[in-house]
Design a protein around this nucleic acid. Sequence first.
DNA 1: CGGTATCCGGGACGATACTG
DNA 2: CAGTATCGTCCCGGATACCG
Lengths: 128, 128
Amino acid sequence: MSQRNIGVTHQEFVEEACPIVEVIDHVAGKWSIGVLVAAAHGPVRFTELERLVNGISRRMLTLTLRKLERDGLLVRTVYPTVPPKVEYTLTDMARELHESLASLVDWAERHRTAITAARRTYDATTTP
Amino acid sequence: MSQRNIGVTHQEFVEEACPIVEVIDHVAGKWSIGVLVAAAHGPVRFTELERLVNGISRRMLTLTLRKLERDGLLVRTVYPTVPPKVEYTLTDMARELHESLASLVDWAERHRTAITAARRTYDATTTP
DNA sequence: CGGTATCCGGGACGATACTG
DNA sequence: CAGTATCGTCCCGGATACCG
């Protein structure tokens, strides 16, 4: 990665090249997985997602949704009612992804105590 | 997330709770997937990984390896020779994860042009 | 209800240089 | 070969406040 990307941010530079690593980074990002999995059941509203995705802030939810919409993984449907109603739906491309994500989450749930234990051991042996 | 986590970083705070989102964040992080997939073939050396994982810097490779080792996903074996030789091997826990990761990478490869196209469309319709 | 705007601290990350 | 150290930048992401 040369230093001659003057006037262009690293973000833009990487997007230009669009390697898989960057695609994965979007799709498998901290919040993206939660949102994608939560939206898999069917159309989901903004506030629902806020509750379903544990620990996400309103700001990050908005940003994550916009990013996923931009990548063509989510469709945003606005119903011009009062109060407003907005629904998010997975695209076919995203639905195809769902199984991989689900198995990832499953793995994480099954092994998270083992991971916590491994960390404690590692920390104990490196910092006495 | 209360504001009363004085004296404790956000990192530490989240690790304490250790929710799946944080486990996934480690495992599915930008570089972690690449490293994990590259190491799946068998024992891999540091320099090999540097070549296999496209675009990673030496620094990030080291940090990623340490993080994965700490989480109990990688075993680091040092051979006390000159020049030194270090091998990284997946643990059983990590090997179990490999299939999910591989299908994720496969998905990303199959759809990355579609994603690039979706972005262009999105950008064109939002910023005229 | 479903956002947007602003502020700001801390972490992610590359570049560069040095080492056993 | 396989790292560590240091530095500087950019961006992630929470807190808070405001809006149609």
